[in-house]
C-alpha cells in the first residue's frame, strides 16, 4: 500500500463530498493497521480487482449517515428517507472509490469494483482481508468519515 494511494482517496473523498453533498472534509489523521476492520457503526465495504486488488471499507456514525441521506434527497419526509440510508451511504462509497479508481487505473489499466455492501451495528462479523491497511480519518461539520484502504498491486502492475 503506497502513501500516494492514500492521497488519491483523500482527494477523491474531498471532491465527492463537496460536489455531491456540499460538505467540506479535512484530514484528521492517517495510521497503519493489519486489516481494513472499521471502527464505527455503519460500514460500507467495496472489493477491488483487476490492476489492483483488495478492499476499501468506509465507516461513519449513524447520525452522519442520516445527514448524508437528507442532503441527497431533501424533499422526502423523514420516514421515507429512512429506507434510503443504506443506499445513500453505499453510493457515496461507490463514488469515492470510483473517483479514486480513475486516478489509480491511469490511461490503460482497468480496475473493477464490487457493488458496495452496507453493514450496520457494532460487532460486525465480516471476514476482512488481512492486508496492510492505511486508515484515514476525515473530519466534517457533520461527523467523521473513516476510510480503510487495504490494496495490493494486482494483475498487470
Amino acid at each position: 500500500m503506497k502513501v500516494e494511494h492514500a492521497n488519491i482517496f483523500i482527494m477523491s473523498a474531498v471532491h465527492v463530498f463537496r460536489k455531491e453533498l456540499g460538505i467540506r472534509l479535512s484530514r484528521e489523521s492517517l495510521s497503519r493497521k493489519d486489516s481494513p476492520l472499521p471502527s464505527m457503526p455503519i460500514s460500507i465495504v467495496l472489493g477491488i480487482t483487476g490492476a489492483m486488488r483488495g478492499q476499501v471499507v468506509y465507516s461513519m456514525d449513524t447520525s452522519f449517515a442520516y445527514n448524508i441521506t437528507k442532503v441527497m434527497i431533501p424533499n422526502k419526509l423523514p420516514m421515507e428517507r429512512k429506507q434510503f440510508v443504506n443506499s445513500a451511504v453505499g453510493e457515496i462509497g461507490n463514488m469515492v472509490t470510483g473517483q479514486a479508481s480513475i486516478q489509480l487505473a491511469g490511461q490503460n489499466q482497468r480496475i473493477h469494483l464490487t457493488p458496495p455492501a452496507v453493514f450496520t451495528g457494532q460487532g460486525l462479523k465480516v471476514d476482512f482481508l488481512e492486508v496492510p491497511t492505511v486508515c484515514l480519518r476525515l473530519l466534517s461539520e457533520m461527523g467523521i468519515l473513516e476510510i480503510n484502504i487495504g490494496l495490493l498491486d494486482g494483475e498487470g502492475m
Binding site: S101, I102, Q109, R110, L113
Partner: peptide
Amino acid sequence: VSAVGQKRLVIDALQYGAVDFVIKP
C-alpha cells in the same frame, strides 16, 4: 451513468455502442 469513469472503461463502453458516459457525481 457511473462512478467508474476510468479512461479504459469509458473507451470500452463507447466502443460497445454507448452514446455518452456521465461520471458520478
